[in-house]
Structures are given as C-alpha cells and as structure tokens.
Simulated assay, not measured.
Amino acid sequence: MEILFVLGMLIQFAVLAIRIVRLFRRQPEESDTQRVNKIRGRVSQSYRSDPNNRKLQQDLIAMLRGDIATAKRLLRYERQRNPGNSDNWYLEKVIGDLERDRR
C-alpha cells in the first residue's frame, strides 16, 4: 500500500515538474508589431511602408485583442465586397464597422 502511495506521489511530482518546465520554456508573447507583421501577406506595398497603415493595423489588432486571423478575414471580406479601394480605406472601414457594432 505504501509503495502505491509513494509511486502516486512521484508521478504527480513528475507531472508538476513537466508543467513547470513547459511554462518557463514558453516563447515570450508577441509584441503588437510582430502581430502586425503577421498580417502581411498578399497586400500592396503601402501596407508595409505607409505609417498611417501601420497605425491602423495596430489599432485593428488591438481592437481584436491580437486575433490576427480575424483581422485578415475582415479585411479580405471588405476587399471582396468593395473592390478597387485603397488599403487605408479597407482598414478604416473595418475599424469603423467594429466600432459601430460595439456601441
């Protein structure tokens, strides 16, 4: 009986140690700039070079609490729905729609 108790305690200790090691091995959280950089895909050069677009990208990602996949999806949707507009227009449209919907 005591052997089973000791064995159980050792297993619990090992599991706890593994969790602690994994916790400390975690990569540091991404900065807003790194998250914005992930948004870059098949977009125009102004997304990368225009400071206004960078600011709008950071604002959008902040509004979405870092959910880059949602930001991409919303921008792609607006590009399909309203083709031919500037990159800045799409960012402002998505941000404006989010602000409106959150009221």
Results as ranks from 00 to 15, higher is better:
37 N>V: 09
41 G>A: 04
93 K>I: 03
38 K>A: 05
80 Q>K: 12
31 S>C: 01
34 Q>K: 05
70 T>H: 02
43 V>M: 03
86 S>Q: 14
60 L>S: 05
34 Q>R: 09
34 Q>M: 08
76 R>H: 12
31 S>V: 10
99 E>R: 15
103 R>M: 08
14 A>T: 11
50 D>L: 08
84 G>P: 03
80 Q>W: 08
56 L>W: 03
24 F>N: 12
9 M>D: 09
38 K>G: 02
52 N>P: 00
39 I>E: 03
52 N>I: 11
31 S>L: 00
72 K>C: 08
97 D>G: 10
83 P>A: 01
69 A>K: 10
64 L>K: 09
62 A>R: 10
66 G>T: 04
1 M>T: 14
90 Y>P: 01
61 I>M: 04
25 R>W: 11
65 R>K: 15
86 S>G: 13
91 L>M: 08
97 D>N: 14
55 K>H: 06
83 P>H: 00
76 R>P: 00
79 R>F: 05
85 N>L: 09
38 K>Y: 03
49 S>E: 09
69 A>M: 10
13 F>M: 13
6 V>Y: 08
51 P>F: 01
61 I>T: 05
50 D>V: 01
51 P>D: 08
13 F>S: 14
4 L>R: 15
79 R>W: 11
77 Y>N: 12
8 G>M: 10
69 A>V: 11
49 S>Q: 07
35 R>E: 01
32 D>K: 10
59 D>C: 04
28 P>Q: 03
27 Q>F: 09
84 G>D: 03
4 L>W: 09
83 P>R: 01
40 R>V: 02
99 E>C: 06
53 N>H: 04
25 R>F: 02
10 L>W: 05
36 V>Y: 01
88 N>G: 03
35 R>L: 15
82 N>K: 11
92 E>H: 10
90 Y>Q: 05
19 R>A: 11
94 V>R: 01
70 T>I: 04
27 Q>W: 07
3 I>N: 14
43 V>Y: 00
22 R>F: 08
94 V>Q: 08
91 L>W: 00
18 I>D: 03
70 T>V: 03
2 E>Q: 12
16 L>V: 11
12 Q>H: 13
100 R>W: 13
13 F>D: 10
33 T>Q: 07
55 K>F: 11
57 Q>N: 07
34 Q>F: 06
31 S>I: 07
14 A>W: 03
62 A>C: 04
66 G>S: 06
103 R>L: 12
101 D>N: 13
45 Q>L: 06
20 I>R: 06
16 L>W: 10
38 K>V: 02
77 Y>R: 11
71 A>Q: 02
16 L>Y: 13
99 E>I: 14
53 N>W: 00
6 V>C: 08
12 Q>M: 15
100 R>G: 06
3 I>G: 12
39 I>S: 04
102 R>P: 04
15 V>G: 10
